[in-house]
Amino acid sequence: MSARKRISAEQRKQERKEVSFAVLKNVPSSPRKMRYVADMVRGMEVFKALGVLKFSNKEASGKVEKLLLSAIANWEQKNERKAETGELYIKTISVDEGATLKRLRPAPQGRGYRIRKRSNHVTIVVDTFKKEEQEQN
């Protein structure tokens, strides 16, 4: 690895240490369905988002709720204290397309219809409100 690449890699690694996040990979539902749930909670305070996810009828909301709890736990582990109400918010939540399993379903007259079983990857980054206010001042 060249010196320039090593420096930028170390810089990225240092930036990731300051941010608390959680990643869920290979969720067996389409990215479109998961993005609908992600859009509901984007930018919300985390405990309010947990309430929204808990009472949502979507199947994907249960998985996002569990992932959000993991991100909160990661933040608490890094900062060595419990998160208080109104302190954390969802900075970014992104849903990326995962691997697609391609299957064939029998169809009339000897044909086969293609079925695409999609999957997705979800990433949640949580941050404190106070840190954002300090950067703006």
Rank of each mutant, 00 (worst) to 15 (best):
A3G: 07
I115Q: 01
Q14I: 12
K5T: 10
A49F: 01
T128Y: 04
R6A: 11
G51A: 07
R103V: 07
N137Y: 02
L67C: 05
F21C: 09
V52S: 01
K130L: 11
R35H: 12
A49V: 02
I90K: 02
R12D: 03
L53Q: 06
E45D: 14
S94T: 15
V95K: 03
R111D: 04
K102V: 13
E84N: 04
R32W: 00
I93S: 10
I93R: 09
P108T: 14
K33V: 11
S119I: 14
K82F: 07
G86D: 05
D96M: 13
Q134P: 02
I7S: 05
A99G: 07
L101Y: 12
R118P: 10
E133L: 05
M40E: 10
G51L: 02
L69W: 11
A49Y: 01
G110R: 06
S20Y: 05
M40R: 10
L101D: 03
K48S: 05
K66T: 14
V95Q: 04
M40A: 13
G98T: 04
F47A: 08
R6M: 02
T128I: 03
N57G: 13
L69H: 12
T123F: 06
L69M: 04
R111W: 08
E135M: 11
Q136S: 13
S70M: 10
E59M: 08
S61I: 07
E84Q: 12
K33Y: 08
E59A: 12
Y113A: 15
A73T: 05
K5D: 11
P28M: 11
S8I: 11
D127I: 06
N137G: 15
Q109F: 15
G110L: 05
L24E: 07
E18S: 10
A49L: 07
Q14W: 05
P28Q: 12
K33E: 13
Y113E: 14
V27Y: 13
K48P: 00
K58C: 04
A3R: 09
Q136R: 15
V95F: 05
F21E: 14
L68W: 00
V19Q: 09
E76L: 03
R32G: 04
S56L: 00
L104V: 09
T85A: 05
L104M: 15
Q109C: 10
I7F: 09
K63Q: 14
K130I: 10
S8L: 15
A60R: 08
S56C: 02
R81G: 03
G110Y: 15
V64S: 01
E76S: 08
A71M: 02
I93M: 12
V41W: 04
K17H: 12
W75E: 01
E10Y: 09
R118I: 12
K66M: 07
G112S: 15
K17N: 13
Q11C: 01
Q134M: 11
L53C: 07
Q11T: 13
I93E: 08
M1A: 14
D39T: 10
F21W: 03
D39L: 07
Y36P: 01
F55M: 08
T128D: 03
K131P: 06
M1Q: 04
N57S: 14
I72F: 09
M1V: 08
K13H: 09
K17E: 14
K82Q: 09
A83Y: 10
N57W: 05
T128Q: 08
M44G: 02
E45T: 06
S61T: 06
